[in-house]
């Protein structure tokens, strides 16, 4: 969830010190941009070239440029496969209170839903579920793991 601006400061300091020193953690820096996961470790594909998930910054439900790109690919794939319905599963990381995270997951999945709808996908084909922090994909307790867990995953419903 929700430490974003508090955390961001600390994170920038951390990044700065990383640049100055280590290489081992440089990989982390390459996989997170401004707190959003940009790697592909956990990503699965709905079809060739169509990633199934988008990632969010701490406490945010704003879609990044990369997320919008992914969702446009999903929209295109959904237009071609008009019989497929989907579920958008919204998730939060473990650094927030359970109840708030349920709401945050719902907000994230709906951000993805709204974007798909503006690209012509009917709302009747999309259902939304939030898992809050209940279903992390990475069980680590570190900023990289948390960034992978702040996500909305598009899953075929039929």
């Amino acid at each position: 969830m929700n430490l974003s601006k508090y955390f961001k400061g600390a994170f920038l300091v951390m990044l700065a010190s990383l640049v100055l020193s280590a290489c081992a953690t440089k990989k982390v820096g390459n996989q997170i941009q401004g707190d959003v996961y940009t790697g592909t470790d956990t990503v699965e594909y709905l079809a060739s070239g169509v990633p199934d998930r988008v990632f969010f910054a701490t406490n945010e439900s704003v879609l990044t440029t990369a997320s919008r790109d992914t969702l446009r690919k999903q929209a295109e794939w959904l237009r071609k496969n008009s019989k497929i319905n989907i579920v958008l599963e919204g998730h939060a990381d473990e650094r927030g209170t359970r109840e708030y995270n349920l709401a945050l997951g719902e907000r994230r999945a709906n951000a993805a839903k709204d974007y798909l709808m503006t690209y012509g996908i009917s709302g009747s084909r999309i259902s939304v579920i939030s898992y809050g922090k209940e279903r992390p994909v990475d069980s680590g307790s570190n900023p990289l793991a948390w960034s992978k867990n702040r996500r909305s995953v598009t899953v075929k419903a039929n």
Partner: peptide, 9 residues
């Protein structure tokens, strides 16, 4: 309780 719909609780 809370009720969430369309991204709002």
């Amino acid at each position: 309780m809370s009720f969430a719909i369309d991204g709002n609780s």
